[in-house]
Amino acid sequence: MTKADIVEDIAQRTGLTKKEVGETVDLFLKKIGDLLVEGQHLEIRGFGTFKVKERKERMARNPRTGDAVPVPSRRVPVFKVSKMLKDRVATD
């Protein structure tokens, strides 16, 4: 499933134009990114939480040469799935 599929489905079900839905979907995704860049998290009930985790600096190895190289600390986006969504998906 892609963004286009989602936009199409929503436009059909709401009667809003694809342009309106597309704009809203794009802004939704962009805003989540903006929030994470600001270090904020977003909690969506029944779905999950987007947040930022700090990864500490660590030493790694260049697999070709075996040299130790430092990997600087960095921020990574993470999504924690809500229990509700996990339960919906878990059952085979």
Partner: peptide, 15 residues
């Protein structure tokens, strides 16, 4: 409504 349907679509796909 659109935001809820985005989430609903993602959830449905995953299920």
């Amino acid at each position: 409504i659109v935001v809820n349907l985005i989430l609903e679509n993602i959830g449905r796909a995953l299920v």
